[in-house]
Amino acid sequence: MAGILHVISDVFAVKVHAVKPHPFRDRRDAGRQLAAALAFLRSSRPVVLALPRGGVPVAYEVAIALDAPLDLLLARKIPAPGFSEFGIGAVVDGDPPIRVLNRAAVERLQPSTEYLEAEVQRQLAEIARRRLAYCGERAPISVIGRNVILVDDGAATGGTMKAALRALAGMRTGKLVFALPVAPSDTLSSLQAEADEGICLVVPPGFRAVSQYYDDFAQTGDDEVTALLAAAASRELVGVAAMENVMKTLAQAMTHDVSIVGPHDNVQRAALIMSDWDVGVLPVCDGQRLIGMITERDIALQTAAGRTAEEIRVADVMTDEVEWCFEDQDTAEVLQRMKELQLSRIPVLDRDMRLVGMVALKDLAPTEDVPAEPSAAGDEEGKEIVRLRRPQSDQADGWF
């Protein structure tokens, strides 16, 4: 590949590699090339989601290279009344499933509420049938709070991927990335608003069909999809079994009795609480809602500047970009994340986003070397605050 062009907007970047004839031998080869371009995301432990069926071989290679879990994102077109080939929206697999409608198409064709509801239920039944056929009894992988890479073997109009991205935006994911081996420039432009980042290896002029850019673009069969998903799931189970932690959820390990401060408290009060509890970091809560964290270092930096601890509010010095986990998450997953980010402790939330506890690395892995608490004398090493998330969309069941 001759070079790289970066196309940047305020909140979005598409990394585009120059085109050569038939750049991909097959979908597996495209996946390996795509994985190399996505290597920078490996440390964030993303979930890789494939749009079946053609996206599965591509996504499998990405998941293997990034050591990431692999799952399907099943999306079904909602056909227009009397025109089965023309889509007026889509239903996307999820808990709960998400319906995305094309506003212009619905306003033009005006399908009845009864028709839409019947079609949604019909497509949901087909989604359930396909998931059972492809995945058996394996539960879908949760994407809440996780960085997600959505993969397909290419995109012509991008309608399915756009609907899938719009649905994912309502599932409380972390960073949302789409990844394509090939797509036309106008399709990439239409996807920009739906994701944090997109990566496409080939953006050719005169695009006509995805198949043009593969030596072998034979249809991906159900057996291949099932086999690749099973292989990926087996690899994930082996990795989890090798972890030293055996507890099922954080609720069994975390400390429930947690001291907090409010945003309007002064930092003198925060310092006293830290001293009493012998900790270097405190959650900042508005009621039960976690809004930030404050450390001894935050306080020391402000008081060193000549301000007194009594006059400085917690809200003025706290960090509001907080790494956290859910109380029903698997401890092996959280333990790995804490190791990678060098966290000594992390807040625990329930599914209503309320603070319910704190968990320390020593609670999950007593034999581990625990990073030092942030302190006034310390440097940035061992810092507790890491941002992996973006503000969530409130338009999941909406329009495009």
Rank of each mutant, 00 (worst) to 15 (best):
Q110L: 13
A118F: 11
M1H: 12
E381Y: 12
K339R: 15
A377Y: 13
L41H: 06
G170P: 01
W277I: 08
I64C: 07
L5C: 10
K77T: 12
F217D: 05
D152Y: 08
V322C: 00
E296N: 07
P23D: 10
R99E: 14
Q123C: 05
M161L: 15
D222F: 07
L188R: 01
D153M: 04
P204Q: 05
Q302Y: 10
L116C: 11
S275D: 15
Q219A: 14
G357E: 09
L74H: 01
G136K: 12
G94K: 03
A169D: 03
R289S: 14
D330S: 07
L168H: 03
S234W: 08
G89E: 05
T303R: 07
A315G: 02
A37C: 10
I78F: 02
R337F: 11
G136Q: 13
V120S: 00
A65T: 08
T308Y: 13
A13Q: 13
A241E: 15
V202M: 08
F83Y: 14
V106Q: 03
A128H: 11
E311W: 14
Q342T: 10
A167Q: 00
G31T: 05
L109M: 12
R129C: 05
Y134H: 11
R208N: 13
K362C: 11
R269P: 05
L250G: 05
R390N: 12
V210F: 01
Y214F: 09
V238C: 09
V143T: 11
S9D: 15
Q219I: 05
P205S: 14
W277Q: 13
V356K: 03
N147P: 11
T113E: 15
R269N: 10
E114C: 07
A133S: 15
F40S: 13
R146T: 02
V19E: 10
V210H: 01
A133T: 12
A315N: 10
S9W: 10
I8F: 07
W324T: 02
L364K: 01
K339F: 14
V356C: 08
E340Y: 10
V240A: 11
Y115L: 10
G158F: 02
V240R: 12
P204F: 06
L38T: 00
D394L: 06
V19C: 09
D222T: 04
A39S: 13
D216V: 15
R131L: 12
T226A: 11
L355K: 00
G198M: 02
D29P: 02
L38A: 02
S189K: 08
I273Y: 04
A68D: 04
E381L: 12
F178I: 00
L73F: 07
D298E: 10
Y115W: 14
S259D: 15
G206D: 14
Q268I: 08
V62L: 11
P205N: 12
D369C: 06
R27D: 03
A39I: 06
L176T: 00
E236S: 09
A230P: 00
I64T: 08
Q395Y: 13
A251F: 08
